[in-house]
Design a protein around this nucleic acid. Structure first.
Length: 419
RNA sequence: GUCAAUUGGAAAUCGAUC
């Protein structure tokens, strides 16, 4: 059974869930008992693919066979639900554990804290962290990394750096999983310079930063329009022996576009090609977006064609960027056409896509049509803070503040928080 | 003796004092 479990685990890690399940059947045929290990591996695989229903049915199956669940099974499912931002489900499982006398461990708490952090519910995350300590479950470096990341995401770098000190006092070694969020947090709060200093300090201490940490810094610098600094950091990255990969080029291109520096754009593209890199989806999309925003739809479509010729498949974001460009330029009919084309391919329009149309309708003063779209979006759970903002702004502009406040109430009722 | 938790780039609204 160990052999089979190892095989099943490696299949699931490669996303070959079907093959893994075939093996499970084969085990049964050969009268080899499956174990909790086997099931846990499979459940983990389905969770990572977001197929929680499949994971749940295996959970039931293993329960019926008396093979579990174990702490690991619960933790796997909990983290699966957390990744889908289904915290209700995750916590329900957590409570179910208590009923079945399975004690949550460090991994379990870390997964839940991570879920809360992802949802930016930092007060709750801290509360759970304290509960964890009260239950004498010892946090480890991952727990700290998750919390640090959470605080950084909401811009609370002070708290994040406090936790960095705390974790070091406890003897945990920070790594790239710790540093990356801190760099990101500093950049997020408009302090790319501090992020740069932080990175320099870490280099002086000979801490090993990886591509991911550097790219985060590059991105922060580019976002603030500091392309020159980003380029020099990029050179430094290369000198440090790190890979200047496709993503790092993508960030620099984003920076060049932000500065509307099309000369730099073509230089970067040339250099990329020379190194054997081809622009990917993301790079093409950022170029297309930039041209749309410059009002140059022709050039935008030229890159779209180039992208398709290159074998890159446009995704939701690519479509949305063009739809936005078309809407803003007043070609709503063309945008709708593109949306249909999008549905015909395998891309499904999302909140942002519909948000573009919604924005166009409210800007044109077609509030009733906008409300119609909004209702459809509500049915598809596609309303969010931004889409409500668009509608509320539209009503306010027309002086219909009554309708606007009704929407405010509605959004709160729907559990969507105003910002 | 195999299973569970954390990392990078693109898109919609708004960003006051000019």
């Amino acid at each position: 059974d160990v052999t089979y479990s190892i095989l099943i685990d490696s299949f699931t890690k490669n996303g070959k869930l079907d093959d893994a399940r075939l093996l499970l059947h084969k085990m049964a045929e050969e009268h080899i008992r499956a174990t909790a290990y086997t099931y846990n591996s499979l459940i983990s695989g389905y969770c990572k693919l977001g197929k929680l229903d499949e994971a749940e049915s295996l959970f039931d199956e293993m329960t019926n066979k008396g093979l579990g669940p174990t702490v690991i099974t619960y933790t796997t499912l909990i983290s699966g639900y957390c990744r889908q931002e289904n915290l209700d489900k995750a916590f329900r499982l957590y409570h179910e554990m208590a009923e079945t006398n399975i004690s949550p461990n460090t991994h379990t708490f870390t997964a839940l804290i991570g879920g809360l952090c992802r949802a930016k519910l930092m007060d709750e995350a801290v509360k759970l962290f304290n509960e964890m300590l009260e239950q004498n479950v010892i946090p480890n470096e991952v727990t700290y990394n998750v919390l640090i990341d959470g605080h950084c995401r909401v811009g609370n770098t002070v708290k994040a750096f406090e936790l960095l000190d705390e974790m070091m006092e406890k003897g945990f070694l920070p790594d790239t999983y710790t540093y990356r969020p801190l760099i990101s947090g500093l950049c997020l709060t408009g302090r790319a310079s501090e992020a740069k200093e932080f990175v320099d300090d870490l280099q002086r201490e000979n801490q090993n930063l990886n591509e991911i940490c550097f790219t985060e810094l590059l991105h922060g610098l580019c976002k603030e329009g500091r392309l020159r600094d980003a380029l020099s950091a990029w050179k430094e990255m290369a000198e440090r022996g790190l890979n200047t990969d496709l993503i790092s080029y993508g960030v620099l291109i984003y920076g060049a576009l932000k500065q509307r520096d099309m000369v730099k754009l073509s230089l970067l593209l040339k250099e990329m090609y020379k190194r054997g890199f081809k622009p990917d989806n993301v790079i093409y999309t950022s170029i297309i977006d930039a041209y749309c925003k410059l009002g140059n739809l022709e050039e935008a479509f030229r890159f779209w064609d180039k992208m398709v010729d290159d074998g890159c498949i446009p995704n939701v974001v690519t479509y949305t960027v063009l739809i936005n460009g078309l809407c803003k330029a007043g070609f709503v009919d063309k945008a709708e056409l593109l949306c249909k084309q999008m549905l015909a391919s395998k891309s499904i329009p999302n909140q942002v896509t519909y948000g573009c149309f919604l924005d166009n309708l409210t800007m044109e003063g077609h509030m009733e049509k906008a409300l119609e779209l909004h209702k459809a979006m509500l049915n598809g759970f596609l309303a969010n803070t931004v889409t409500y903002n668009i509608l509320i702004r539209g009503f306010c502009k027309l002086g219909r503040t009554g309708d606007a406040s009704e929407l405010l109430i509605e959004m709160i009722d729907n559990g969507i928080s105003p910002d």
